[in-house]
Write a protein that binds this DNA or RNA. Structure first.
Lengths: 242, 242
DNA sequence: ATGATATTTTTGTGATCACATAATTTTCGC
DNA sequence: GCGAAAATTATGTGATCACAAAAATATCAT
């Protein structure tokens, strides 16, 4: 049975640490839930409904929803209803291309600033991904994978494309999670090792190739999901994924 | 004499049409003023100050500032003060590279959808740019130029990179305007004609080249401004623009 | 029964207030 | 005079209320 209103969702609740302001807590909570695909696309998210569910005043929810709309994570319709946008084949394709475009660029820009400590950190993160894969912990595979990419690109102290990249992740994330949840076995060629080797060799070309391959692998695994077409808006089957 | 508080700024006031909601009016007003470089970088923008200046309640201003922060147009400091970010040489360089990366991609994606009507529209916009150049109307040169690019990229009905591109414009805009205001004579090689010709020939290569050249021309004209180095944070002179 | 209309409820927006915290000014010791 | 500390002011955040518009529900004519 499909959930009909917010009360039927089981939101992941992150505990609210003392220092964290309410608005940020709500924002990160909603963001995480969106990235995990916990919220059904098309279903309206209401300020008061979420406020009640999270036991906060409507104000921080209002702020968080506006920010998420600005980042493309949710869509404000003409009737001012807020929903998780449906995915279309074309949008999916374009978002993937944007990921490759922006992230290969960001990786290249980070390369000159990579030091030994960055490589150590990346290897540590990669180990945590392997661990998450072993536990078949789909949510953390995705979250830690993002941490890997973010850490790499952040090596560049003059980095400014990360917000753009995160916006693309947010638009792609909910759909990916829904699709991947269907995967029985998760098999990932470890492109991260290739990327780390490219960093050690300081090879721009190898680095770009590793990042692009990593992204394309993810896309391929999504495309491999049985019955994936049903998740695209208005395409229950038969349309090519391009 | 530098303005010390908001009251000393002369904000461009757009008239508020009946249909426009207050929050959107405030957002667009602030956005336009930022793009025109009307607001001194580094000076704190306060919710109550702007609300009083615009004669609205603090609420819509609060919303607009949050959105602009999300788009990178303003920066929220640790002390929760909101300012127009300073430009640095490295940031400027990176923003320009991002423009080229995203916009050549967007142009290429639009090409297959270009019809005669699009070309007509683009020519009309280009004529308005020429007119603005003749009038030495710097603000409109910039605004109409953006309209040209937006119109081109929007031909692709599955376009999703425009919000990302607009975010880059917003981060680049204030600085560009401040710099360009110093230019005695505005001379622009009309790369738009080259772009339109590329569209007619349906040449991806020529189109990408025209868009990149258009962007690089703009950068070059900014770099040509006498004493431009003084506008970069902490670099009164001598640092290369790369 | 059914489709149009009227009523009720829900929702987003804007306004105002309380409160904690950051910035500013004043006070005070020396 | 001058710097540290205290008092004051300004500011962002969160909460609550009023209001108009939209959605959902109820009513009614046929």
């Amino acid at each position: 049975m499909k959930p009909k209103n917010l009360a039927d969702f089981e939101l992941l609740i992150l505990e609210k640490s003392e220092a964290l302001k309410t608005n940020q807590w709500v924002y990160q909570l909603l963001r995480t839930n969106l990235l995990c695909g916990k919220i059904e696309p098309g279903l309206p998210l209401t300020i008061r409904g979420l406020a009640k569910a999270l036991n906060v005043s409507p104000m921080p929810v209002r702020e968080a929803l506006h920010r998420l709309a600005c980042e493309g994570a949710v869509e404000v319709k003409n009737n001012r209803r807020v929903i998780v946008p449906q995915m279309t084949v074309e949008k999916f394709h374009e978002l993937c291309e944007l990921r490759i475009l922006l992230e290969t660029h960001a990786a290249e820009g980070a390369l000159p600033y990579i030091r030994e400590q960055h490589i150590t950190k990346l290897q540590e993160i990669d180990a945590r991904i392997d661990s998450a894969i072993e536990r078949v912990d789909r949510v953390n595979i995705s979250l830690i994978n993002q941490e890997f990419h973010r850490t790499l690109y952040s090596a560049n102290p003059f980095q400014i494309s990360i917000p753009l990249i995160e916006s693309v992740w947010l638009q792609l994330g909910p759909f990916s999670q829904i699709a991947i949840a269907k995967l029985e076995k998760i098999y990932i060629v470890d492109r991260h090792v290739e990327a780390i080797n490219a960093l050690k060799q300081r090879s721009t070309f190898a680095l770009r190739r590793a990042i692009e391959a990593d992204i394309r692998d993810g896309i391929a695994s999504i495309k491999s999901v049985e019955g994936i077409h049903g998740y695209f808006e208005g395409n229950t089957h038969a349309q090519s994924l391009g």
